[in-house]
């Protein structure tokens, strides 16, 4: 029997990765930067999280029996908080590197972003193996803390597992998306950010610090995307590791289009993408070939949305007007 509740629970768990990635990318794109480095940045977030967790584990007192750090002494709060902070730090640093190249040095955004992806994936592949082999047990233990939902979830039956059974990062993803949406649409800062992305020359004339906004938006956006990488490792894979994370990064970039540059729509979009992503696993008797065709669906749907948006020509659904263009005050 197809268990719809556990299916949806899995989908929402997975959606957090896409949601972090796309929220981060939306903030970046709203400032006029098409950051194609998101897959690399998500990798770096995952690496940063693992690195922070390994630092925390190695700081634990050594247990007498196994002569390894005593995992039973792990503080759930610190075991979650430290990786989050290091993931933000690593991913933010990549964002800063991107901004330096694309804002200050006015390099081509596509080229810079792709290089960030190459570099981020390379660094992660290079450093993750030694960390992972040394601290695997600790990561598994920590991922339990990451995946712990509200204690009363199990007493509420299906309702509880649908709404309260997720790990902290899933709720954080939704909160971040809602906050980002409110900031973009309701605050002065959001208005300025959108102005910078739409028409930097006019924004500059109105006294908005274009470079500053672009820097901050890209760095914050990257940090948020980095949390997606952390979610992938600690929540979805339960502390293990595989390389499919960059595919998740590209899907997040696709999701930005799907959500038409709106973080609140991105919440629904990410759940839909996650459903499409895991659906082949839940269809009984599906062949390998058909499964491959189903993997195509999220990208195909994105293309359709992209086409729909461009057919419609509705102003508020369009990409930011100066997306992909560097701004130099004196260039006309």
């Amino acid at each position: 029997m197809f268990d719809i509740v556990s299916f949806l629970v899995q989908a929402i768990r997975l959606s957090a990765i896409f949601l972090f990635g796309s929220t981060g990318e939306i903030l970046t794109e709203k400032s006029g930067h098409l950051n194609l480095g998101i897959p690399g940045i998500m990798c770096m977030g995952a690496l940063g999280g693992c690195y922070g967790e390994s630092l925390y584990i190695s700081s634990l007192p050594v247990s007498a029996s196994t002569s390894a750090p005593d995992l039973t002494l792990m503080n759930p709060f610190l075991a979650v908080l430290i990786p989050i902070l290091t993931a933000i730090l690593f991913a933010g640093a990549m964002g800063a590197l991107y901004s330096f190249l694309a804002v200050t040095l006015r390099a081509n955004q596509n080229v810079t972003g792709l290089t960030i992806t190459t570099f981020g994936i390379g660094v992660t592949k290079f450093f993750i193996a030694p960390i992972k082999s040394q601290y695997q047990a600790g990561f598994s233990q920590a991922s339990i803390f990451f995946r712990t939902g509200f204690p009363f979830a199990s007493s509420l039956g299906d309702f509880g597992s649908l709404f309260f059974s997720y790990g902290c990062l899933v709720y954080l993803a939704i909160i971040v998306a809602v906050v980002a949406s409110l900031i973009l649409s309701k605050t002065r800062v959001g208005l300025h950010l959108r102005a910078v992305g739409e028409n930097p020359a006019t924004a500059d004339a109105a006294g908005i610090n274009v470079g500053g906004y672009r820097y901050v938006a890209t760095i914050i956006g990257s940090a948020i995307a980095g949390l997606g990488g952390l979610t992938f490792v600690m929540d979805w894979l339960s502390g293990s590791w595989e390389y499919s994370i960059d595919g998740m990064g590209w899907l997040s970039v696709a999701l930005v289009i799907f959500a038409m540059w709106k973080p609140n729509l991105s919440i629904l979009g990410s759940i839909l993408f996650a459903i499409l992503y895991i659906l082949p696993n839940y269809i009984p008797g599906i062949g390998f070939a058909a499964r491959e065709l189903m993997n195509m669906v999220p990208y195909f749907v994105t293309v359709l949305v992209l086409l729909f948006v461009s057919f419609q020509k509705k102003r508020e659904n369009q990409p930011p007007a100066s997306l992909g263009l560097s701004y130099f005050r004196e260039a006309r």
Binding site: V111, T115, T118, F119, I121, G122, V123, K125, F127, I128
Partner: peptide, 16 residues
Amino acid sequence: LTGDGFSDIVTGIVFF
């Protein structure tokens, strides 16, 4: 070396 990302790192740095 164990990690296989080394060539990506070198390429990335030169590209930057």
